[in-house]
Design a protein around this nucleic acid. Structure first.
Length: 559
RNA sequence: GCGCAGUUAGCUCAGUUGGAUAGAGCGUUGGCCUCCGGAGCCAAAGGCCGCAAGUUCGAUUCUUGCACUGCGCGCCA
């Protein structure tokens, strides 16, 4: 059991004996200053008014009872205005190792989402070009959230929404079509006469590659009527680009369980059904020849169009139907990962969620800020249309999946990120993925070395090394950090914040490196102590590995 | 003009339900034994937590105003 839960249980009992309930504002947290003990509780401060007592006096009473309550409590001090500073016995902390051994890959699991279904929709890039670095950040955040929610007990699905019903798809078809005609004209020696490539088409080189492939397979392509040609180009282009996107995501260790097509949604009539429902509930109305949704009734700035006066549907209309579909599939928590430039879209989406009869808490949007791609401090311009961006594939090729993922996940999603290619390749603390991975590799190296030297008594005799030998302050620091991991993982899930994990891992790696430098682990003259230490380090390695797994970063045995 | 986010050490950033002397890395300066992996460790310097009021035992955290930065504000997606 976590130290904080253990202490809370003890205090709750004591407070109940005094005739009070556990105050809602009471907290139990590790104090900033280690000298104040392992955990600090403010319940005496919070309870003082209700109990009509001086906070310090009340704290003294609680402290006396707490000292006698359990052998796991080594010391209770009253400090400051009335904090209870609690120190646990070494035996309590040493028991953490066995807990990690018992739970293994599940160490860090919590009951936060047990019995609930969650869905994370992320990337969902239109298949009009390869993924770029910004998509990479969304992919890392979304995929990590899925892993974090799963460990927190949620039954979680990862989904990719394919916008294959909109105007951009037609633009893609037209872009490929026009490039194909250019290529065909060039073959006939008529290049000088061709019109300039339109600005509103996709400029990237990949469009030309696709057109060239199509022509090679079917030289008669450009003889088709224009509408048919564009359709063919669209179908083929989308397939090629999607294959590329799937490959990029696979290389980035990102998995989607469901690929959901907007076109399918439209063809099934789901959008029409949703619009009819909105009409039925009085939220949708006709005006100026268009169909509107009165989102202002739910706090939006202005009402929004669902069906334009030309009869075509807006993106918003199908998006409402899409979200209705999500809830129909039974998700209790629907999470959308969006680029931060879409934040203006949130109020109308929240309006839609409310109109669908869902609680606001059943819908969360994670905004992922822009990635500023640099090389040696110099900005690299990015624009899909101009074709001047750096693709995710190129970046991964250069810096590797682990470094890229850790960089994306070591920052709050909703803050801008400078991604310097030169920096992410460096093996310094500017780029802490190596610091954390090195900690894991270091532990593995120690075990290998111990086996070579034949001094790993614990490995030979099973996990019965005497943990009571772990009394150094650095050892207790490691044990305390192990205790915190389940709470960190749960907080990361509750706050949808993968960066909590990154920061925890950097701290754990730091304490491990400190310990390693301060103490000789392998000591042939003291096999009992060596075994105990190796057993502790095995648990630390497990925590590092589990944490890295939540980020989708590997935990190498050697580097 | 309106809305949303942000402003913490020279740089890049943590700090979520209000707590004790505000943290980390990088950079700078100075150290680390013929020893388990130096991708490491130890130490020092470095701060009006954007500014100003308010709320209370207590504010980087909550409220309001202001300044600056970014992003949005379409019958686009």
């Amino acid at each position: 059991m976590r130290a904080s839960e253990h202490l809370r249980t003890l205090l709750q009992t004591i407070i109940a004996e005094l005739g009070f309930a556990w105050p809602a504002k009471a907290t139990i947290e590790p104090p900033k200053d280690k000298r104040h003990g392992d955990l600090a509780a403010n319940c005496a401060l919070v309870l003082a008014k209700e109990a009509d007592k001086n906070p310090r006096q009340l704290a003294e009473e609680l402290a006396a009872k707490l000292r006698a309550s359990s052998p796991s409590i080594a010391e209770v001090a009253v400090a400051g205005p009335g904090f209870l500073n609690v120190t646990f016995s070494p035996a309590f902390w040493q028991g953490k190792v066995a807990e990690v051994e018992r739970t293994g890959e599940r160490f860090g699991a919590s009951a936060l989402g047990v019995g609930k279904k969650a869905q994370v929709e992320f990337v969902s890039a239109n298949p009009t070009g390869p993924l770029h670095i910004g998509h990479g950040r969304g992919a890392a955040v979304g995929d990590s959230l899925v892993r974090i929610l799963r460990l927190a007990g949620y039954e979680t699905e990862a989904e990719y929404y394919i916008n294959d019903a909109g105007k951009q798809m037609h633009t893609l078809g037209r872009s490929v079509w026009l490039r194909a005609r250019e290529l065909a004209a060039a073959q006939n020696g008529a290049a000088a006469l061709r019109p300039p490539f339109p600005e509103d088409c996709y400029q990237g080189e990949y469009i030309i590659d696709i057109a060239r492939d199509m022509l090679a397979a079917n030289p008669a392509l450009t003889g088709l009527p224009e509408a048919d040609g564009i359709d063919a180009c669209y179908e083929y282009g989308m397939k090629v680009i999607f294959d590329g996107i799937r490959q990029d995501l696979a290389d980035f260790q990102v998995t989607h369980d469901v690929w959901f097509s907007e076109r399918g949604l439209v063809e099934r009539g789901s959008v029409e059904k949703t619009l009819a429902m909105l009409r039925g509930t009085g939220h949708a109305f006709e005006e100026d020849g268009a169909l509107w949704f009165n989102t202002t009734a739910f706090g939006d700035d202005k009402n929004r169009v669902l069906r334009k006066s030309d009869g075509s549907l807006t993106y918003f209309a199908s998006d409402i139907a899409y979200h209705a579909d999500k809830y129909a599939r039974g998700f209790d928590l629907v999470i959308d990962v969006w680029g931060a430039d879409h934040h203006g879209y949130i109020p109308r989406m929240r309006a839609a969620i409310a109109a669908l009869g869902q609680q606001q808490s059943a819908f969360e949007v994670i905004l992922v800020q822009l990635v500023n791609l640099l090389r040696e401090g110099e900005q690299i311009a990015m624009s899909t249309r101009a074709g001047t961006f750096e693709t995710l594939a190129d970046v991964l090729q250069e810096v590797g999946t682990d470094a890229a993922r850790f960089m994306f996940l070591s920052r709050k999603s909703d803050s801008k990120l400078d991604f310097d290619l030169a920096l992410v390749k460096q093996r310094t603390m500017d780029n802490p993925v190596y610091y954390v991975q090195y900690a894991h590799a270091r532990v593995e190296a120690l075990h290998r070395r111990a086996a070579e030297r034949g001094i790993d008594a614990a490995a030979r005799a099973g996990n019965d090394a005497d943990l009571a030998l772990l009394v150094e302050s650095a050892e207790l620091d490691l044990l305390r950090l192990l205790d915190r991991f389940p709470q960190v993982a749960e907080d990361a899930a509750a706050n949808l914040a993968p960066h909590f994990i990154s920061y925890y891992l950097m701290e754990l790696a730091g304490v491990l490196h400190h310990y390693y430098a301060a103490h000789q682990i392998l000591d042939a003259n003291n096999p009992a102590l060596t075994s105990a230490r190796l057993r502790l380090l095995r648990a630390v390695a497990q925590a590092l590995k589990n944490g890295l797994a939540l980020l989708g970063v590997s935990a190498p045995d050697s580097m």
